[in-house]
Amino acid sequence: MSTVDTSRPSAVRTGDPATLAAFRRRDRTRKTLLYTLLSFGLLVMLAPFLWMGLSAFKTTEDLTASPPVWIPTEWTLAHFRDLLDVLNMPLHFFNSTLVAVFVTLGNLVFCSMLGYALAKLNFFGKGPVFGLVLGALMVPMNLMLIPKFVLMSQFGLLDSYAALILPFAAGAFGVFLMRQFISSVPDELIDAARVDGANEWFIYWRIILPLVKPAMATLAIFTFMGSWNNFLWPLIVTNDPDKYTLPVALATFAIDPTKSEGSNGMLMAGAFLVVLPILLVFIALQRYFTQGIATAGLK
C-alpha cells in the first residue's frame, strides 16, 4: 500500500535547513517511541499464539513448572500423539477441508451467476431479487438455526456433509461483492459479444469470469476462511463424531472435563493444528485479505 506521508510539515519537504535539523532530531525520537509502542502492541497480539506454539511442544513437567518455563527444556511431540489417540484429527481435517472446498465452489459459481444477472441483465423482478440479497445481509444467522435444524432432520440430512455445505453454498455477501465487481466491466464488451452471436452463458463463462478473477480470489479466500472457522451450525447438525469439523472436534474435547482436564498440552496441540493451516494461508495471501476488507468491508 502506497501512502503519502502526511506527518511532516511542508517546511521539511521544501528543505529549510534550520528547521530541518531540529525536525530530524525530533522525528527520530518520535519514531523510536512509535516503533516501541507498535512492537509492544504486536507482542500482546501475538503472545497467545506464541504461548500456544511453545506449550504444544513442552513436556508436562515444563507445562506445570513453577517458576514458569518459557522455552521448552525438551521439545516433544507427545501431546500430538496423545491427541491423535483421543481425536481422529486427520478425519476432522478432511471434513473441514471438504466442507470448505464445496462451500467455496458453491459461492464462486452461484454468487457470480446472480452477480452477473444483477449487474448486466435486464430482467423482470431484478429489483426485488436484489432487495432480497441486501435484506439477507442484515438477518443474523441465529434467527434461522432452529427451523433449519428441523428442516435438515426432515430431509434426513443430519450428520451428513450436505447439511454442512448446502446452507452456506450461496451467501448474500458473495452476490453483493460479485455484482459490484461485474458492474465495472464495460457494457461495450458484452454488447459486442452479443452482436457476434454469443449467448448469455458464453458471455458469463468466457468473458465476465476471466475479467473478475481478482474478485473471485478475494471471495474464495474469505468464504474458505469463514467455512473453516464456522462453529455453531456444524455443532448443531452433527452428532456423529465422524462428521465433526475441526472446531467442533476441538470444542467438544475442550469442554468435556472428563477428557481434557489437566491436559493443557493436548489442548494446545489441538488448537495448533486448527490454527496452523489458516495461518499459513493468511500469511501467503495476506495482500488479498487486507484489500478485500478495505474494498468490500468483508470480514
Binding site: W51, P247, L250, M268, G270, A271, L279, Q286
Partner: peptide, 23 residues
C-alpha cells in the same frame, strides 16, 4: 505490523478460545 495485528481475526474462534482459557 498490519499482518500481525490482523492475525487473530482470521483464526478459528474456538481454537483461540481454547488458547485463552489456558492463557
Amino acid at each position: 505490523f498490519r499482518v500481525g495485528f490482523y492475525t487473530p481475526v482470521v483464526t478459528s474462534i474456538v481454537a483461540v478460545a481454547v488458547v485463552w482459557r489456558f492463557v
